[in-house]
Simulated assay, not measured.
Amino acid sequence: MPQFDVSSFSSQLFWLVIVFGFLYFLISKFIAPKAETILMQRNSFLEENINHAEEYSKKAKSIENLRENKLDEVNLHVEELNKQAFELMDLRFLHQTKELSLVLDKKKEKALAEIKAYVDTFHLNEPVSCIKLAAFIIQKVTNKDADIDLLKKIHEKTK
Results as ranks from 00 to 15, higher is better:
residue 154 I to R: 07
residue 6 V to L: 06
residue 15 W to L: 01
residue 104 L to S: 07
residue 103 V to E: 15
residue 69 N to I: 05
residue 26 L to I: 06
residue 146 A to H: 04
residue 123 H to S: 00
residue 139 Q to C: 08
residue 53 A to K: 13
residue 134 A to T: 14
residue 119 V to S: 02
residue 47 E to P: 01
residue 150 L to M: 08
residue 1 M to A: 01
residue 116 K to A: 07
residue 51 N to I: 12
residue 77 H to I: 04
residue 29 K to F: 15
residue 4 F to Q: 04
residue 54 E to Y: 03
residue 26 L to P: 01
residue 25 F to W: 10
residue 122 F to N: 01
residue 71 L to F: 06
residue 54 E to D: 12
residue 96 Q to N: 05
residue 99 E to Q: 13
residue 16 L to E: 00
residue 100 L to S: 09
residue 17 V to Y: 07
residue 143 N to W: 04
residue 90 D to N: 10
residue 36 E to K: 08
residue 15 W to Y: 01
residue 85 A to Q: 04
residue 93 F to I: 07
residue 118 Y to V: 08
residue 17 V to H: 00
residue 82 N to Q: 12
residue 34 K to D: 11
residue 74 V to L: 15
residue 19 V to H: 02
residue 95 H to Q: 13
residue 4 F to K: 02
residue 35 A to K: 09
residue 30 F to K: 03
residue 48 E to M: 04
residue 109 E to A: 06
residue 92 R to K: 07
residue 56 Y to Q: 11
residue 120 D to S: 03
residue 85 A to N: 11
residue 103 V to I: 14
residue 151 L to V: 04
residue 98 K to Y: 12
residue 41 Q to H: 13
residue 76 L to G: 14
residue 16 L to T: 12
residue 10 S to V: 13
residue 63 I to R: 05
residue 158 T to D: 11
residue 6 V to E: 15
residue 93 F to E: 15
residue 72 D to E: 14
residue 15 W to V: 03
residue 151 L to T: 11
residue 48 E to N: 05
residue 59 K to S: 06
residue 84 Q to T: 08
residue 109 E to V: 00
residue 97 T to R: 06
residue 104 L to G: 05
residue 33 P to F: 04
residue 104 L to N: 12
residue 116 K to L: 06
residue 77 H to A: 11
residue 75 N to C: 04
residue 121 T to Q: 13
residue 5 D to F: 05
residue 100 L to D: 11
residue 1 M to S: 10
